[in-house]
Design a protein around this nucleic acid. Structure first.
Lengths: 343, 343
DNA sequence: CTGTTAGCGCTTTCAG
DNA sequence: CTGAAAGCGCTAACAG
């Protein structure tokens, strides 16, 4: 016999398909002897339930979709790790979807949203309005966004509380004696650029200091761009002893520029980044940075989604915030320690 | 009407389900007018085919599974990128599976292998025998391994040709004037440790030189371990001017150690790594390294798998090799350039 | 505790 | 060019 089905088992054991199904699903209302006999047979012939048939009959696929920018982002691995761990503890599967680039891809994705191939959806850093998603959510699909920053109104969104970690960073810088704060801010096309800049400015104020606007410079979120910007910043001639780069990649560029100008890190300038990607361990010196809680956010999103599926109800609009915190490494603590220092 | 089905469409349009199905599948043998009318209706009511029903009827899920170590490996993103790109060009989906850690997880995975939830499987860096996979493959499931190094006999495996890139690296080191070669080798529990060490040794021989066994030291594949090993190596007092670290992470540790001992990179010692992960751009100096062709390997594997599914036949045992090459950055070319140099 | 009878929504011979 | 009928393999009332 090629592949056993529930009917084969039923015939072989002289019971009905229903009974077999009950045993398969561990229902209590089956005679112990019958159950044991069936289980033995199942084991014996190596029967395994057809996932497809179950899905059709149950009207559910036990699949959560993950829509994310796999093409670019190295930090996606953090999101994946968390999602996988949560999913693996259940009977769900995780299926990946890249952002649809062409209209054709968008159409296919919209179909997937509605053809029952997923029971829930997690969307990472979309940051653009996609009506098909909102519609699916309105039709009852549990959807949680990560880092959407309000682009898709009405959907649940989970974002990091960047200000907390940045405030920690500033407090740390003050504690090690820094007073002249500079920042490589991101470009205005990303919402996070302003968020991080504002948080930095506010945090500095809380310490009775002021962010000198001459020490603010914008750059794209890449190492080379930040390097150029930092060079320009140093060349303005306005001294600074603390530099916050709006991302780890930018921090790398900034550190290169500082070294180029003969400034020692951290002795002349303390550098702090944002993200805490794996690479932060590999910079020289190792980078002090604000941990971006992608893992935690993803875990949280997945928990909400799985709950949503189980409860069989959509997820309400909400904006959940996950705290960030500073990871102190070697790029920020000068050896000759200033004011509040402990050196 | 809540959710349109093929029957609803048939009734509404006064045709049979069969005809609707034909139109849905773009079969040519349908009256043009009927077809147009149906298409209009479909568009009109926003009908979308149930993926689950199609899958059950067709006996195929159009899913390729990806079994991989998501918990640890940052380079997985490369594998994912390639796999997603290939998959997105088709009507397949990619579903993720983490390595089963407990027997229970293994049992669940083995079930998935046989319950029709995937039509093909790609396995990354498993490097341990998993009979369930071999069995599924024998039963007709297309399976391709990446970096399995023969642990699962009888299955198709794709591996990098590390020797090519390492030979390039050695040639490069010779060209910039290096003659005293050292290596931080991996520990023997990983097959790649010996592969890389041997390739290095052979390459050096091809240049009429010899790898001094005093300049070989083993360490786990991490930065701290490599740092300690490098310190020990330097302290042996046997001079060297070129150091090959068996991974990028190890190279980072090695560079730290060299700096600790007052050695300049690349002027005193040229450092070359292996992997070319994103972090290689972030080291100081930027790391010259052998590119690990994970992306290419994954793309190749996916192509084979999709072919296998389309042709509806298993994939034969094979060992495909993908070339590697050297990426020259700043850690290897000394400013005062030696022998074959071009400075 | 167990079986009967309908589906789940689509595909596919086989006739016409 | 079109339709009837029989599945795909399992679940789920509803009776007993």
């Amino acid at each position: 016999m090629r592949k056993w089905t529930i009917s084969d088992l039923a015939r072989e054991a002289n019971v009905s398909k229903t009974t077999v199904s009950r045993v398969l699903n561990g229902r209590p209302d089956v005679d112990a002897e019958t159950s044991a006999r069936l289980l033995a047979l199942i084991e014996d012939v190596g029967y395994v339930r057809s996932a497809r048939a179950v899905q059709l009959a149950k009207g559910r696929a036990n699949v959560v979709g993950l829509l994310a920018p796999f093409d670019t982002s190295p930090w996606m691995i953090e999101v994946l790790r968390a999602a996988m761990e949560r999913v693996q503890a259940t009977h769900f599967s995780l299926v990946l979807h890249s952002f649809p680039h062409s209209p054709a891809e968008m159409a296919r994705f919209a179909d997937q949203l509605n053809n029952g191939s997923m029971d829930a959806l997690m969307v990472v850093s979309l940051q653009q309005e996609v009506p098909a998603i909102a519609k699916a959510a309105a039709d009852g699909l549990p959807v949680v966004m990560l880092n959407d920053y309000g682009f898709n109104a009405g959907l649940a969104d989970i974002i990091p509380d960047e200000a907390v970690g940045i405030a920690e960073a500033v407090a740390h810088l003050v504690a090690v004696g820094r007073r002249r704060f500079a920042i490589i801010a991101g470009t205005p096309d990303f919402p996070i650029s302003a968020t991080r800049l504002d948080a930095y400015r506010q945090a500095i104020r809380k310490h009775g200091l002021e962010l000198d606007e001459q020490l603010v410079i914008e750059a794209p979120f890449t190492a080379p761009a930040a390097q150029a910007a930092t060079l320009a910043l140093v060349d303005r001639g306005v001294g600074f002893d603390a530099l916050f780069a709006s991302s780890d990649a930018m921090a790398v560029g900034a550190m290169r520029a500082l070294k180029q100008r003969g400034l020692a890190i951290p002795d002349d300038v303390s550098v702090v980044g944002f993200d805490d990607f794996a690479s932060a361990e590999f910079t020289e010196p190792r980078l002090t940075t604000v941990h971006n809680p992608l893992y935690e956010m993803s875990a949280r999103a997945m928990a909400q989604l799985l709950d949503g599926v189980k409860a069989n109800k959509p997820i309400e609009k909400s904006e959940e915030v996950i705290g960030t915190h500073l990871i102190v490494r070697d790029s920020s603590v000068p050896s000759r320690n200033g004011a509040g220092g402990r050196g």
